[in-house]
Computed example of a mutant assay.
Amino acid sequence: MQAAAKEAGKDYEIFATSASDIDNQLEHGHADVLMLGPQVAYMQGDVKKKTDKAGIPMTVINMQDYGMMNGKNVLATAEELLGDK
């Protein structure tokens, strides 16, 4: 994602964190969008309640994009969530 953003001339801060750190990241306003890896998709319901409360869009990363490390597609999904096109 970072390489795809750089290639597109976008200066985004993109980072990964553990599932156990989601509450901390939301509490401190460190995220504009939250994307879960497909391996933790089972957490989507609980996390969605938290992101809705924080006003942050969220989704689960497409399994194929994740597996193929297709940062361009994952970045496009994040931008769609943010309304950036």
Rank of each mutant, 00 (worst) to 15 (best):
E13C: 11
N62T: 11
Q25K: 15
Y66P: 06
A54H: 08
I14N: 08
E80W: 02
M35W: 00
F15D: 11
M63L: 13
L81K: 13
I22V: 05
K53V: 06
K48V: 03
L36G: 01
K48T: 06
G83I: 11
D84M: 12
A5I: 02
G45S: 05
G37L: 07
D52I: 10
T17R: 12
K50R: 11
G83R: 09
Q25C: 11
K48S: 08
G37A: 14
A3P: 07
M43G: 00
D21Q: 13
H30E: 15
D23H: 07
K6I: 12
M68S: 15
A78S: 07
H30G: 10
D32Q: 10
T17L: 14
V74T: 11
D52V: 14
A41F: 02
A54W: 06
I22Y: 01
D23G: 01
L36E: 00
G29Y: 04
A8C: 06
E79D: 07
Q2A: 10
A16P: 09
M58I: 13
D46N: 06
N70P: 06
D11Y: 09
T17P: 03
Q44W: 00
V33W: 01
D65M: 12
H30T: 06
K50G: 01
S20E: 15
I56P: 00
E13M: 13
N62A: 13
M63G: 08
T51M: 01
G37M: 07
D11L: 08
N70L: 03
P38V: 05
I56S: 05
E27V: 12
K48R: 11
H30P: 02
V60M: 10
D23A: 13
Y42Q: 06
D65V: 08
A76Y: 00
L26F: 10
H30N: 15
E80S: 15
H28D: 14
K85W: 08
E79G: 00
V60A: 07
M58T: 14
A54D: 03
A8Q: 14
P38K: 05
A78W: 01
A41D: 05
A31P: 01
Q44R: 00
M58S: 15
K6D: 12
M43F: 01
N73R: 06
Y42L: 05
I22H: 02
H28S: 12
D52Q: 14
L26P: 09
G67H: 05
M43Y: 00
P57H: 13
N70M: 03
Q2Y: 08
G9T: 02
N24F: 14
A5L: 01
K48I: 04
Q25A: 14
Y66K: 07
F15R: 13
D84I: 15
I22T: 01
G29K: 06
M69R: 13
M69S: 12
H28Q: 14
I14L: 11
I22D: 01
